[in-house]
Structures are given as structure tokens and as C-alpha cells.
Design a protein around this nucleic acid. Sequence first.
DNA 1: CCGCGTCTTTGCGCTGCAGCAAAGAATGCC
DNA 2: GGCATTCTTTGCTGCAGCGCAAAGACGCGG
Lengths: 244, 244
Amino acid sequence: MLERQQLVRLLRQVPLLHGLGPNDLSGVAAAAQCREIERRRFFFRQGTIADAVYVLNRGRVKLTQSTPKQAHVLLRFIAPGEMFDLTSLDGQPYTLSAEATRWSQAVVWKVPTMIALMERYPSIAVNALREMAARLQELRERYRELATERVERRVAHALIRLAREAGWRRESGFSLVDIPLSRQDLAEMTGTTLYTVSRILAGWRRDGIIESGRQRLAILQPSAVQAIAEDLPGATSGDEKPKT
Amino acid sequence: MLERQQLVRLLRQVPLLHGLGPNDLSGVAAAAQCREIERRRFFFRQGTIADAVYVLNRGRVKLTQSTPKQAHVLLRFIAPGEMFDLTSLDGQPYTLSAEATRWSQAVVWKVPTMIALMERYPSIAVNALREMAARLQELRERYRELATERVERRVAHALIRLAREAGWRRESGFSLVDIPLSRQDLAEMTGTTLYTVSRILAGWRRDGIIESGRQRLAILQPSAVQAIAEDLPGATSGDEKPKT
DNA sequence: CCGCGTCTTTGCGCTGCAGCAAAGAATGCC
DNA sequence: GGCATTCTTTGCTGCAGCGCAAAGACGCGG
């Protein structure tokens, strides 16, 4: 658990609370609770009542949605400082689950508390809007991809996003060390199957574009991945497409 | 154009402004502008700077996103009273286009103006958050569908949503009269092609589930559409699926 | 009322990808 | 260190749905 002072210092880094002065922050901190959970445990699960707003402090969280018949979709990862996607302010159930991919710590406000804080410090609400707008934007983009692009390109896009959000720059390219990322995960991010993902990655590995192992992945040639994601020349997947 | 009084009366119906008193509303109205456009014209287009927040007053608006290579995705329709999805508060370009499907009128605030209003009347910001959360929720659901369900079921879901948002109840079922809805539109909503949509609708028409013509569509048996959308018994598409 | 443009239908061939199955790797646990 | 578990790879088969082509229906404007 955290001391008040420590908590305030942390909250200063949180985009949701940008623009608040030290006194304000202290008030906001006073209304917060703190939760820590182990790897593979859930901050909340789809179906339970959405009664709180979460901001991740340390660790890494995976937001997923699942269907009655056990098909899962991986929506996004949350990095420290980010707010978990909020689903409802009206006591509806969560429509997604938040699972820690490793030990994680989050700051939590009850929904009515947070609404009161927003009424008192409107810039919190505006910050939240910004963050929601950005999420909506990204999801729309992925939706369009899913509707219009083939699998290989979607996987390439997924890697680019992951590298941006959680990639460590190395001598050559990026490695995605922060997140244990299985083929299954990638499949659930891109709307395909683990088999197809495995085949695609195998191809890229043969071409020296990536390096990959069990739950690990490194991008050796970011530009090549980019080329596959867009429709640039230099895409390697076998057939060249001669422009007429 | 509208008189101030008339505008205030209209704004009273707008969810975004719920909770504001008459004086507040008058102030909000004073900061607003009004735009009217013809069918097939755009309130704004993807790529131009997002400098305003829109609330539809009368008419019907279609939000679409398109790729460099002319593939289009139909994100949603906006009904009177609804806020257009906001894409950015920071001077980024719009990532979608807003086209009137018929003569439409919208109330418009410049982004900095709206932010100032939100700082002054925080409940506007909270209302906006609610609306954004709902959008995000729906989009997530559609994303999951696109990733996990087959085309026929996605189309059924699209019809259900349309009926809820814009359907007129008739003796039997619903007719979707408000929106000229082509096969192409439905395809762009569900991530498929107009051919496939046409074939699916033809099948349902044979089964008496719907009635459809050029840009028109009526649902005769809502429960049958529901049955296809979920996996209920009574789905008609040829093969029964005997539960083992 | 005719002709033209737009929307819709349907036949047909093709392919990207799903989805078993089964054989490897890598890892963790006792 | 060895066994069990979990993750990955890869061959093979099948089919849902894409997408061309061409004909038909509808509705609008003149």
C-alpha cells in the first residue's frame, strides 16, 4: 500500500489528472483506493457491476471481451498511467474484463466519487474525454482494418501498435518484452486463429523480419513490418504485385 | 436559422446538456452556431481539422471512414439529439466523415468554446463521457462480432440495431424507412460485400422474415432475425444444428 | 412514357483462411 | 532431472465468402 504523499507524487504523472494543482491532487488522492493483484488475476470481470474507475499505476493489464461461447477478443493493453476503458457510469455491468499480465497496482475511485470529482474539477472530465476519444479513434481504426484488410496486414499493424506502446528499442528494431505474447493473443487481437498467426510469423521469421519464440517476439526490421502494414513496395510475402 | 428561444427549447431535449438550468442553457445556446446542409453533403470530411463539436438537431447523418484505396466503412447513423462522435480535442484531423442522408440541421460549438463550457458546466463533460462510453461500448461489441461471428449473423445484428435506432413499428415488425439503405451500406456496416448481403437478404425474403426493395427494408419477423443474430433454435438458414 | 442511370440479383469459379490432428519445442513443477 | 503442461509448428482438407460478369428491376427526369 501507499502513503498519501507517495500517492500524490504518482498521480502527478497521470494524464487523467493533468492540470490539477497540488491541493487538488491531494483531495483526489484522498478519495482514491488502491488495489494490487497478482499475475493472471482480474481487477474486474465482464458481467459484474461497473462501480469503479481504474487508473493503472504499475504493471500491465489486458482488456478482453468474450462471447457466451468462449471466443475471446483482446481489446488492448493498459500501460502505467492509463485509465482503464470505462464502460458505464450508470451501474451497468462491465462489458469487458481487466486481467493483469503480471503483478499490478491500480488506483481506484468509486463511480459516484469520480463523478463528484469531475463536477468539482472539470478538467478531469475533459482529460477523460480526451482519453476516451483517443480510444474510440484507435478502435475505429482497428474496426476498419478488420473489415477491409487481410490477416497478414492486420497482424503487421498489431505489431506496430504493440511496439509503440510496449516495445523496447534494441540495437536492431524492437523487442516486445513487457508482455508475454502468445500466438493466441495475437490472434485474438487481429480477429484470426493462432494457426494463421503462427504461419504468418514463420514466414516473416524466414525473411529475417522478426525473431520469435515462445511468448516472445522481436521486430528486427520495423520498416519491413511497416511495408506490409501499408501497401508499400518491399512487402515480402512471396508475390510481388506489378503495378500496371 | 433559429431564434434564440427556439434554440434553447431544442437544446433542452439534448442528452449532452441534461441537468442544465434555463439560464445555463441560454448561455450555452449563445455560444452555439447552427448549420444546415442538404442531402449528400458533408458536415465535415475525414482529413480536415476537427475544430468543432456537433449535435444533430434535425435530419439524419451517416458517419463513415474510408481507406486510401476507397474502401468505405459505415460506422453509425446519428439521430436528432445525438452528439457526433468526437475524434479529437487537440486540433487533429477528423478521422471520419459526417454525411447527411437527407436535409439536416446541427448545432455547432467550436472546440475551445465547448471546452470552456465544460469547465464552467462540468455536467456537460460528464454527459459527453456517458455518450462516448456508450459509443465505445457499441463499437467494441461490433468489433467482437466482426472478429468472431459469421456474416449472416452480423447482418442480423446490424438490422436489429437499425430497427432500434431508426425503425418504425408497423402492423407486423419494423420498417426502416428513415434511412435509404442500400445493400452496399449494409455491407459497409458489417464488413462484407454487397453481393453477400444481397444473397443473405434474398434468403430471408424467401423465408418471409423480411421484405426488401430498392434501398428499402422491413423486418416482418423480428424474432426470427433475433434468432439468427443469437444462436437460438429456429434460425432458418437451411441447416439445423442438432445439439449433441 | 420512354430511356438512362443506379441498384439489385444470381451464376460461377476461386482462394484465403479456418480448423482439425499430431508432432515438436520450451517451460515449470515436484 | 524427468515428467507434465503449455505453447508452437505444419500438413491437409474443406468451405464461407469474395468478386467478376451479366442480366434484371426500379425510379427519376425530360
